[in-house]
């Protein structure tokens, strides 16, 4: 009697384990397979049955890093992402704080407008940006991309930081004020240092968004300001895709995002709720 119950209980658990295992394989196998592909020669890539154990070659990584312009595209991605993160924090963080402190008409309308624009597909902005950037000579410049990314980063900064500031105890700010701190001083020396976690999480999340961005980078750059993700697509454009090279490029682009995402895992759910979706 007891034994039967024991087996039934365990069957349920085993079922869950199998389900979790299947989930893990479904999620991880594609990425692992891409990683293996980056270490295979073109011949090995097409062998049947597919190879799991083989002598890896780092030829593709060498080709991508040394022989192609990939390093430049990688640093373009870095500069554009860091630049846009810095600008959006400088503009967005004081604004997020002011939204908490300031009372004025249409305040809630402006906040909803911020979120509503974030929800639109990126494609909505691409054509007008392309046309006006051509006029302003911002096409194929890193500055152009940095500005374009502000459209999506500013709402994220305002929303997530607004959430962090809302939890901030007013008593501390009042204490600072009594001690004679100006609004600017209390913000700079009291509020900001105590919100470091929120700031870092926000910065990393928008960094990843810029790093991953596709359609703006595709349309607004040509050669000089090309980002790493678009460079990978260009590897594929040539006749007879060099799978190993494409995969090696992809692995290089992957590493920073995976690293960052582990760091911000705890804050991701919160940021997602405030509209930080990639799109």
């Amino acid at each position: 009697m007891n034994g039967l119950k024991f087996i039934r209980g365990n069957l349920f658990l085993i079922g869950i384990y199998i389900f979790v295992l299947a989930t893990l394989i479904f999620t991880l196998f594609p990425v692992i397979w891409l990683g293996l592909l980056s270490l295979k020669t073109q011949l090995q890539a097409f062998t049947y049955p597919p190879l799991f154990i083989f002598r890896p070659t780092f030829k593709h990584y060498y080709e991508v890093i040394i022989q192609s312009n990939f390093f430049r595209y990688f640093s373009n991605s870095m500069i554009v992402s860091l630049g846009s993160v810095a600008l959006s924090l400088i503009i967005g963080v004081p604004a997020a704080y002011a939204f908490k402190k300031c009372e004025f008409r249409f305040k809630n309308h402006i906040i909803s407008w911020t979120l509503a624009t974030r929800m639109l597909p990126a494609m909505v902005y691409v054509i007008p940006y392309f046309v006006s950037f051509q006029y302003l000579r911002l096409i194929d410049t890193r500055m152009g991309l940095i500005i374009a990314y502000l459209t999506f980063n500013l709402p994220i900064v305002v929303w997530t930081m607004n959430g962090f500031f809302a939890q901030f105890p007013t008593s501390i700010e009042e204490a600072a004020k009594i001690d004679g701190a100006s609004t600017w001083q209390s913000f700079l020396y009291v509020v900001l240092p105590l919100s470091t976690t929120g700031l870092i999480a926000t910065a990393l999340i928008i960094f990843m968004w810029c790093w991953n961005e596709f359609i703006f980078a595709l349309v607004l750059t040509r050669r000089e300001a090309l980002t790493a993700t678009i460079a990978i697509i260009n590897f594929m454009a040539y006749e007879g895709i060099e799978w190993g090279k494409v995969a090696a490029g992809a692995m290089i682009v992957l590493i920073p995002v995976i690293f960052f995402s582990i760091m911000v895992r705890k804050y991701m759910a919160k940021a997602m709720f405030s509209g930080a979706i990639k799109g």
């Binding site: 990843m208 596709f214 682009v253």
Partner: peptide, 8 residues
């Protein structure tokens, strides 16, 4: 899957 670039 969610955090890597959609291109990849």
């Amino acid at each position: 899957p969610m955090v890597i670039p959609p291109v990849i």
